[in-house]
Simulated assay, not measured.
Amino acid sequence: MNLTHDIVAAFAPTGRLRASINTGNPILAAPDPSTGSARGVSVDLAHAFAERLGVALELVVFDTAGKSVDAVTGEQADIGFFAIDPKRGEGIRFTAPYVLIEGCYAVRADSPVTSMDEVDRSGVQVVVGRGSAYDLYLTRELKHAGIVRATSSPAVVEHFLAHGGDVAAGVRQQLEADAARLGGLRLLPGRFMVIRQAMGCPRGRGDDAARCLAEFVEEMKASGFVAAALQRHGITGAAVAPAGA
C-alpha cells in the first residue's frame, strides 16, 4: 500500500480519520456494557486503518445503518462500514466485503408460515429496520408482500410483537438473540440474502483513496485480522469473506 501525502489528506481532511460506526448491527459493533463506547470488528478495523495512515481516530457513532450511510455520503465521516447495496453506492465507494452474514426471517411460533416461499404473498406484512441493507433489498425484491419499517434493526422484533405483522426480517444473529430473549418466535429455514459487509468512503475522495481502502481490506482478511476480531468479540455465525469477493 503506497500511502502518499495526497491519499492521507483524502482520508483525513480534518487531520483526523472520522470513522462512521453503526451499533445497530451487533455483528459490526455494539456499545460496551462497561464503558458505553462502541466496540466490535468495525471499530478494530477503524483503529488499524487510522494507525496505518498515521493519524488520530475519531469515532462517529450511530444507532442505525441509514444514519451511518448519510454521514459518509454527506462527508461528515471519512470511512464507514456498511452492507454493499447499489442505492448506497450512489454516494459511497465500497471495498470488497470483509464479512458475510445472513439475512433471515422470523415468525411467531404459531404462525402458519413455514418457509421463505410463503413470505412474498399478498396480505403478508414484513417488518424491517428502516434503511437497513435488507430493507433496501426487500424493497426491490418483494413483489406482493407489504413492508412495515421499524425505527432500527434492533427494534424490529419488539415492533413486530407489539404492533403486528406476519414476518420479521433481520440479521440471523439479532433474530436468534431476540427469539431467545423474548420467546414465542421461530426462524424460517434458510436465508433470503447474504449481506456483504464492506468498508467504504465518500465517492469524492478519488480513485487512489478507494484503491487504498480496498487493498487494506484484502490485507486484513488475508492476515487473519478480521477472523481474530470476530473471535475476540465473540461473534459467531459470520464468515470472513473470501479474497476479492
Rank of each mutant, 00 (worst) to 15 (best):
L175T: 01
S68R: 12
E51T: 06
D208E: 14
L100G: 04
H233T: 01
A227S: 15
P26A: 10
P112L: 07
L59F: 03
A168H: 12
G54H: 07
A30C: 05
G234Q: 08
V217N: 09
G146T: 00
L138Y: 06
F192A: 05
V167W: 12
T23Y: 12
G80F: 14
E215G: 13
G123D: 15
A30L: 04
E158W: 03
F81T: 03
A227C: 10
P33I: 01
T14R: 15
A155L: 07
V119F: 12
R39H: 08
A48E: 10
A241S: 13
Q197I: 08
V240A: 12
R39L: 10
E176D: 12
H163A: 00
G184L: 05
V124P: 06
G165A: 08
V128R: 06
L213S: 13
R181K: 10
P33E: 10
H144Y: 13
A150S: 15
S20P: 03
R203N: 15
V217C: 06
A106M: 07
V72C: 04
R205H: 14
A133M: 01
S152K: 09
G66R: 06
L3F: 14
G165P: 08
G54N: 03
A106Q: 07
V113W: 09
L17V: 02
M116H: 15
P31T: 00
E158I: 01
E219P: 08
A65H: 07
D178P: 02
V148Q: 11
F192R: 03
P33H: 10
S115N: 13
F81S: 02
C201H: 14
G131N: 02
Y134I: 01
A239K: 08
G183I: 05
H159E: 02
P26D: 07
E118N: 11
R108P: 00
G24E: 14
A243Y: 10
V126S: 15
D32L: 00
A245N: 06
A180F: 06
G129H: 05
E75W: 12
A29Y: 14
L188A: 04
G36V: 01
V41Y: 08
Y134G: 01
R108I: 00
F94A: 09
A46Q: 06
V156G: 02
S153W: 06
T95R: 11
S115A: 15
R52V: 00
K221E: 10
G234N: 08
V8T: 15
G190I: 00
A96E: 14
H47G: 06
A56I: 01
A106I: 00
R108W: 10
P112E: 08
I235F: 08
E58L: 04
V99E: 14
S152G: 05
V217Q: 07
Q125V: 03
A180T: 03
L185T: 00
I92A: 10
R232I: 01
A77I: 02
V157T: 02
A155G: 05
G234D: 12
A238H: 09
R88I: 00
V113Y: 15
E176N: 07
R203D: 07
A241V: 07
A229Q: 15
E75F: 09
V41N: 05
E75D: 15
D70G: 04
I147Y: 12
D208S: 12
A9C: 01
L185V: 01
I27G: 06
R16E: 11
A46D: 07
R130F: 09
S68V: 09
V113N: 04
R140Q: 12
A227F: 11
D32N: 10
Q76S: 08
I7L: 12
D208M: 04
P154W: 11
I195V: 03
L213R: 13
